[in-house]
Computed example of a mutant assay.
Amino acid sequence: MKKNFLVLFAVLVTVLSCNTNSEKIGFVNNSELINTYQEKIDMEAALKLEIEAFQKRTDSISQAFQKEAQGFQIKAQGMKPEAAQAEYQILGQKQQMLQQRIQQEESEIQQRSQASIDTLIKKVRTFVKDYGKQNGYTFILGSNEAGSVMYGKDEYDLTKIIAEALNAAYKEAK
């Protein structure tokens, strides 16, 4: 992995050092671009509402089950031990089913969220690629926490320009 990075870095340095005036190079801050993209902001707001609704349903189900369990405890005091044990097992099975249903729904929300994020990232990459082609860029590099672009002159930072164009395209498509 380090060897591939070093080879890629060497090639990039070579390409950049051989840069003629006809080549156009820029970079974007990946995190900033994604985080200022209105579609992501809208997606997060919708996801937050979905999670809040899920939590309300979960709380309601839990409260109803707790009331049922408390009612059973009172009722069990007047029952024969065998009958109380049988009802207790039924109550335990019901609790397991409720927990499985909650876990399944939580997993579905996570999968939908991840799929949305993946789709969003692909959309942004495609947009940046098209932007580069339409505006005559030889390279548009992405900077991130891992340091793929460790330094770039501010004049080559396309983050704000591309974010504005991306948000304008999203607004038009809406």
Rank of each mutant, 00 (worst) to 15 (best):
A10Q: 06
Q111K: 15
Q114N: 14
S113I: 00
L49E: 11
G152F: 13
S60D: 08
S60I: 04
F127A: 05
V13C: 15
A146I: 14
K133T: 06
R101G: 02
Q93F: 01
D118G: 11
Q103C: 04
S113V: 07
D154M: 07
I25V: 14
A64W: 02
E82Y: 12
Y137Q: 05
K3G: 02
L8T: 06
M79G: 03
K2P: 04
L120F: 10
V128E: 02
A53S: 12
D42T: 07
S107K: 12
Q134C: 01
L166Y: 00
I90W: 01
A86M: 10
I162G: 01
A10H: 02
Q63G: 04
I41R: 12
I41F: 05
K3R: 07
K122G: 03
K174D: 02
K3T: 04
F5W: 11
I90V: 08
P81V: 14
S60A: 14
G78W: 00
Q63N: 14
F9E: 12
A163E: 01
V124A: 04
I90P: 00
Q38N: 09
A146K: 14
K129A: 08
Q89W: 11
A146V: 15
S17R: 06
Y131D: 10
Q103F: 10
E23Y: 05
L12V: 00
V13S: 12
E164Y: 04
T20W: 07
L98E: 13
Q66G: 03
Q55I: 10
R112C: 01
G132R: 04
E68L: 03
G132H: 03
A64R: 10
A10F: 10
K24L: 05
K80D: 15
A163P: 01
D154Y: 10
K56Y: 09
A53M: 02
K48W: 07
F5E: 11
S107D: 05
S60G: 09
L98N: 14
K171F: 00
T159H: 03
A168P: 00
Y156V: 03
I41L: 12
Q96K: 11
V124I: 15
A84T: 08
N35T: 13
Y37H: 07
A173V: 08
L49K: 11
I61Q: 04
K56M: 12
R57L: 08
F127L: 06
D154L: 03
I41Y: 09
V128W: 04
E82T: 15
A163N: 03
K67W: 04
S148T: 13
Q55A: 13
S107T: 09
F139I: 05
L141C: 08
E172G: 06
A146Q: 13
A64L: 07
A173D: 01
I117A: 00
